[in-house]
Structure formats: C-alpha cells, structure tokens
Lab assay of single mutants.
Amino acid sequence: SSQSQGISSSSTSTMPNSSQSSHSSSGTLSSLETVSTQELYSIPEDQEPEDQEPEEPTPAPWARLWALQDGFANLECVNDNYWFGRDKSCEYCFDEPLLKRTDKYRTYSKKHFRIFREVGPKNSYIAYIEDHSGNGTFVNTELVGKGKRRPLNNNSEIALSLSRNKVFVFFDLTVDDQSVYPKALRDEYIMSKTLGSGACGEVKLAFERKTCKKVAIKIISKRKFAIGSAREADPALNVETEIEILKKLNHPCIIKIKNFFDAEDYYIVLELMEGGELFDKVVGNKRLKEATCKLYFYQMLLAVQYLHENGIIHRDLKPENVLLSSQEEDCLIKITDFGHSKILGETSLMRTLCGTPTYLAPEVLVSVGTAGYNRAVDCWSLGVILFICLSGYPPFSEHRTQVSLKDQITSGKYNFIPEVWAEVSEKALDLVKKLLVVDPKARFTTEEALRHPWLQDEDMKRKFQDLLSEENESTALPQVLAQPSTSRKRPREGEAEGAETTKRPAVCAAVL
C-alpha cells in the first residue's frame, strides 16, 4: 500500500463515540455579560531565545476518518491537505487489492476528492471536503458537486459515486458533537469551532446549510445566566432586550441578528466578523496607526449616533465590543453586545450600574441610586476607546495605585505619557480631550465629534464608502454560481449515467 503517514491498516477498528472529540476555545468574540476587562498594560515583551531549542513535538491529529468498508483504511489527519483517489500521487490511494476487485472500484476517479483545513476566524481551523469526481462525492447523502466544497462537521458520513455507498465517517477532533444542539438549529446550521467564551456562554462559528455562508452563533446558558443575574427581577429580559434591539436596528456599522432560537439555552445567530475584536488588534499591534484609528472611530461614531437617534444607549462600549470585518488594516467595524443597552424612556434617566469599570463615565460612578444619566455615557466610553487606539494603553487603570480607579475617572485625570502622545496629531488629542470631559453637559456629542476637524478627511470617508460598496456587492452575490457537472467518465454501479447527480441539489457548496 502507498498510504501516507497516519493511515492504519485495519478497517475493522472499533469506532469511538463522539464524546472523545476535544474542545477548543479562544478569547471572547462577544459576550452578553460584562466580565473583568482584559488588561492592556500587560503586553508581554519578546522573550530571549533559549540556548537549546526544544524538540519539535509530534503533531496531534486534528481529524480521524473511520473506514466503513473492507479495502479502505482508517486515517489520522495530521497534515493540512489529503487527496483521495486511484492515482498513485494521492496521499490516500485507493490501491488495496481487496478494493480493486470490487465492482465499485471502476466508478472512483483518479482524484476523487480531497479533505483539507484552512485558517478561519480567531486563527481556528475549518475542515472542508472538495469534490473532484465525475460520479460524485456525497456528505450525509447530499451531493457536494464537482469543483465545489463544503465544510465537514463531526460525524459526517462520506459516500463515493452513490449516496448509499458510504466509505468513511469523519471525526473532527477539535469540535463538539452536533447532537448536543437543538434540532431546529441543526436543521438550518452546521455548528463548528468555538470563537470565544464568557461567564454565561460562548460564541460558535457555524455555516448556513442552504448557502454555506459563515455566521456566529452566540449561545447563552439559561442556567448560568439565571445564577449570574439572580438580582434582576427577570434575567430573561436581558436576552430578550438584546434580541428586540438587534432586530430593529439596520446600520452597516451595527451587528445584524439573523436568527434566534429559544431552547434549553438561547441561541442568537449573528453575522460573522472575520477580523475578531478591536481589543485583540490593539494588543497585537501595541497601538494602531492614526489613519486606521480615524477610519475605525468614524464608523463607531456613525453607529452610536444611529443608536442615540433611535433612543438607544449602549452602556457597555469597549474594544471587546467592536468587531472587525476582516484581518486587513482597512476594514469595516461593527458594534455588538447589546445586553446592557437601554431604550430611552421619557425621563432619559437610568440608575442601574452596569458596564465595565474602566470605560464607565464619571456620572455613572457618582450617581448610583441618587440620580440618572443619559446618552453622554456612550460618548465618554468612545473617548476611552479612542485614547486606547491612539496610545496603546488605557487612560484609567486600577494599577495606578496612588489613585483609585473611581477617583481617576470622576476627576477626569487620565494617565498622559508625553513621549507616547508625541507621535499623535494635535487634532486627534483634542478630540480625545473633548470626549473625556467629566461634566456630561459639556462633553462632545456624537454629532459634535463628527464635525471635529480631525474627522474632516475626505480620503478616509471615501475609503469607508468603498468598503461599504464591497460589502454590499459580496452579500448580494449568490453563493453557488454554477451547477454541478453531469458529465460521466465512468458508469455508476447499477444505474444510468447522471441518474442521481442531477436530482440532488449541491447543498452548502461554494464554487472555488
């Protein structure tokens, strides 16, 4: 046999249950609850290399294929790409003598399909299967379609040439079993990697079954959420508030809700932002270029202005709740996480202390139980975000031990490091100062900020419009641009040419 590394010779191994799959997660993409704000000051410096380099560890398999027929071997997927077919160049070659004697062998292509993985959001991997055969590759009886790919989820059954000719079961060793999710959700989405997690739940990458488009699904544990919100009269209202707010909003710089499922837990389906959180971008770069800050901040102002015009105060604006559309420097941003939002009543007064301390406005800290506050709290938070983006460190921090965090904020005395700000323009610093004003009545509004000289930049605004146009074009394009080929190089076993392929839609398939 010419099988590559990772293939075992026996096809009769006992199949494990899916609970053996491991679970991976990374930083929070968007969480309903406010958790302790991640610290920006503690960015690790590059460490000196050791005298002796450690040995390379043996790579762990990321997936496993269990053979369902004699003549096929099990495969431990270690590499990122595997070709399957009769050709000797394939990493998994159909060359077992037992297999060659079967009637089905002649229906398999020289290069029938490939399984591979690509880097997705949060640097996690996504597994795909890609059909290159004349007679078809099927996943859970659905045709992939020649020249098309679809994501592979845990426990997928792979069939060759005929939908009933099941050859492998695919085990993704990095994700959960699909069966743990409600059927209504599974009918519409293929669940994938964990993108982030918080005290009350997690955010998962998923794929729409009909279109193969990526989405983010925010899962909120009702049990954990009820415990964490025990002081509230009705904890469920917080989730329902977020859903109702998101459904009503329609702005290019605000995250869109696509679906909602109320089962044992809450499942909020949101558009996916491939670039992750602004927080991670700031930490990764230490600070952002001023031109990049301007492009992002302009969009934040437009989003918050839209919220305020619609009578909504976000109340928890922070870099973790600003998501980026891509890994590119120039990209769209979207505001997310409306769990603490407040729809303005007639009095415009709110007395609930919520939000993240580092970003809270002075009037929030001094008015607990005594007075109210209004939309100006969001403008203060925007000032803190702009400060961080321009400088790479927070204006107020618990680690300045000589003054408490509350006193720093209520006095408006931010930590100004001259040598850092020497590289920032006077106009940018002036806008920061106009937003970090203790008196909410004297603080800049979103309208005033948008009129500030720093943002009178036609090149930046043109760039934003171009990015918007690109997004609109990409969302308007159909996901499947061509029909699967019906040509046949070899006959199917026991049926006429093209008899099955043309009847089945290529579900969740995307043209390369």
Rank of each mutant, 00 (worst) to 15 (best):
L332D: 02
Y296Q: 05
P319K: 00
T356E: 00
S367Q: 02
G494Y: 00
L246C: 00
D280K: 05
V269I: 11
N321F: 00
N250K: 06
N374V: 03
S325N: 01
Y306V: 08
E328D: 07
Y266F: 09
Y298N: 03
S341G: 14
I257V: 10
G355H: 02
M300Q: 03
L332S: 15
A496L: 05
Q402R: 09
S411C: 12
R375C: 13
R315S: 01
N285I: 10
Y298K: 10
A361R: 02
E447M: 09
D265V: 14
T358S: 14
L405A: 00
A291G: 11
D459G: 10
K281C: 09
A496M: 06
G275Y: 08
L365T: 08
L332T: 08
S341C: 01
C354A: 05
K294N: 09
F279D: 02
S411P: 07
I313T: 10
P453R: 14
L481T: 11
N250Q: 09
E471I: 13
S367A: 13
M460N: 10
V304L: 12
L349P: 15
E271Y: 10
G498T: 07
L278P: 03
K247C: 15
L307F: 15
L382G: 02
L467G: 10
T502Q: 05
T336L: 02
I255Y: 10
G276C: 13
K258H: 10
R400M: 08
Y373S: 02
D262M: 15
C331H: 13
T370K: 11
I333F: 02
V322W: 04
V420R: 11
V511P: 02
L324S: 08
R287K: 08
T336N: 13
H399C: 03
E271G: 08
L295C: 10
L323H: 03
Q305E: 13
T292G: 10
V364Y: 05
R451K: 07
I343R: 01
M273W: 04
A291M: 07
E495G: 03
E500L: 11
Y296S: 07
L324C: 10
Q305Y: 12
G383F: 00
L270D: 09
L278R: 03
Y296W: 12
E290W: 08
L429E: 07
L360R: 05
E500R: 11
L353D: 01
L270I: 07
V282H: 04
Y393E: 01
E264V: 08
V282A: 08
S474R: 07
L390C: 14
V377F: 00
K318Q: 07
E277S: 01
T486N: 13
D265K: 13
E264H: 08
D265S: 07
A361V: 04
Y306R: 07
E290C: 05
R351C: 14
A499S: 14
I254Y: 00
S391G: 03
K248H: 09
A506L: 00
Y298D: 01
H452Q: 02
I313V: 07
W421V: 03
V377I: 04
L272H: 15
A510H: 04
T446P: 08
L405E: 03
T358P: 06
R375W: 12
P395L: 06
I254G: 06
T347V: 08
L429P: 07
R375Q: 04
V432L: 15
V366S: 05
K289N: 09
T501A: 12
E423W: 15
L270K: 01
E473K: 10
I245V: 15
N472E: 08
C293E: 01
Q408H: 11
T358G: 05
S326C: 12
D330E: 07
E274M: 11
E471W: 06
E244M: 14
Q327R: 14
A510M: 09
K289R: 08
D430G: 15
D378E: 09
I312F: 13
A428F: 00
H251P: 02
F297C: 13
L365C: 12
A371F: 15
G345S: 07
G284S: 09
R287G: 15
L302K: 13
F261V: 05
L431C: 13
E277D: 08
P362D: 00
L324G: 13
V364E: 05
R504V: 03
C253A: 15
V282T: 07
E495L: 10
I388A: 07
L246G: 01
K342C: 08
G284L: 06
L270A: 08
A449R: 06
P357H: 03
K256L: 13
D262V: 10
V366C: 10
I312L: 03
E363C: 00
F279I: 07
L349I: 08
N321C: 00
L405P: 04
K434F: 00
G311H: 07
E447T: 12
E495T: 15
A499T: 03
I335R: 02
K342E: 04
K286N: 14
F416I: 04
L272M: 12
K463P: 09
D457G: 05
A449L: 00
R315N: 00
V511I: 04
E500A: 10
G311E: 02
E398Y: 02
K318N: 02
P478T: 01
G276S: 13
L288G: 12
L249F: 11
V480I: 13
Q479H: 08
S367C: 12
T358A: 09
I255R: 03
L323E: 02
H308E: 02
L270W: 01
H399R: 11
Q456E: 10
N259S: 08
S381N: 15
H452Y: 06
V438E: 05
T336K: 03
L344F: 10
A361G: 02
D262G: 09
L405Y: 14
T336R: 00
V364W: 02
L386Y: 01
A442G: 08
N310S: 05
E447V: 10
T352L: 03
S487D: 06
G369D: 05
K248L: 07
Y393W: 05
P453L: 11
G275R: 05
G284R: 13
H251K: 11
V420F: 03
G355I: 05
T356R: 00
P491S: 07
T292N: 08
T446S: 13
S469L: 09
N415V: 14
